[in-house]
Design a protein around this nucleic acid. Structure first.
Lengths: 197, 197
DNA sequence: TATATTTATGGACGATTGTCCATTTTTGAA
DNA sequence: TTCAAAAATGGACAATCGTCCATAAATATA
């Protein structure tokens, strides 16, 4: 399955054949249908693996974060742009599946990197920060929407221009947006701790 | 070629065969190689067409925009999220090509929706707005980076949840980011005209 | 109308696809 | 050591792939 991920990353899904997979894995032709019902099953397995890996690594960052909502949020953004999660191979695979997701419902289930679970976590975190604001719910909703869009956009930037991409810059820009929405909770430093002024 | 675009949108590139294309187009088998050197040539043609269409429609919006840099910027964001540019079919095709771009250098040339030309236009526009700021170049660079990332993220949001997507909301959130960076040049209204205060 | 040129057709080609299965090899318990 | 169960092999299969080309139809020129 690791070999399959490599092949997808290098050649895209359209050019991922059983022949190429078993060549890369050093196995024989029949193995694919011994462990998986079909080639599609194998691909779906890879897609699910990507999703699980994303959340496993994200949880690693979250568990080391402080108790404040600002800490949680910084952990999420940092994780999302970290070398552990955002790699050339991982984005290649993510976007390869995305491209085929429309035609394959099984892929669709795993093509939303930051799905409802993470979306809700971010929303609840923002809601906590925005508690004393005028319209906390809408502010939190906008902040969630914008943050996820920014992160997604940074991934695409990494995907298209990974040689010029800079994680610290990306993180700084994301937090510039966050800080603008919550001037009391965040300062403009590099995603740093809160400075209630 | 229009038929090819339809097939890609519906079935993804992996499942786009010559048979399916000629069925959809109502033509015969040999036509593909009469008008195009190969199937790949045809696909590259579609990719180029997408890129040309994007810029053609964007120019339509820009030509109707006012003279102020704020007007230009609003035109760009509005166009990018408009019903003319951002459609289910168009995003399906864009992301289908993206997924295969890594393995095909010809696709790579057209996979960057908002390429250097637009990036520079946005940067120059921001530079104009940021002229009297402390560090105009860095501010304009960050604003360009963030704006493009936000737009890209909104596209992905539309791609994954087109049924829940709301253009006005997306636009509002983008301008919330922009307004935060340039409080003197933009007010917080829905992408509205500038309010120098 | 007769002829030359362009455009379109669809059957056939070898190559490659995903899948299957009769074998062989390896493993582990008796 | 013996033998049944599990794992792995790789050749063969029908189907489909992209490509090609000998024709036929349509169009333009004389």
């Amino acid at each position: 399955m690791e070999a399959t991920a490599d092949v997808i990353s290098d050649h895209g899904i359209a050019n991922t054949s059983v022949t190429r997979i078993i060549e890369r894995a050093g196995l024989s032709r029949g193995m694919v249908h011994l462990h998986f019902q079909s080639k599609e099953d194998l691909l779906v397995g890879v897609a699910r693996h990507m999703s699980e890996q994303y959340y496993a690594k994200l949880d690693g960052f979250l568990s080391q974060a402080g108790p404040k909502p600002q800490d949680k949020l910084e952990a999420i953004v940092t994780a999302d742009l970290s070398e552990e999660i955002l790699t050339r191979k991982s984005v290649n695979i993510w976007y390869a599946f995305r491209g085929e997701a429309r035609s394959d419902n099984a892929f669709m289930a795993y093509s939303d990197t930051r799905d409802d679970a993470l979306r809700n976590l971010i929303f609840e975190t923002y809601l906590e920060i925005a508690a004393q604001s005028e319209n906390p719910e809408m502010l939190a909703r906008d902040a969630t929407h914008g943050t996820i869009a920014l992160l997604e956009g940074m991934w695409v930037d990494f995907f298209l221009h990974s040689d010029q991409f800079n994680r610290a810059t990306a993180k700084r820009i994301v937090f510039r947006f966050v800080a603008a929405l919550f001037p009391q909770a965040f300062d403009l430093q590099d995603g740093g701790p809160e400075k209630p002024n």
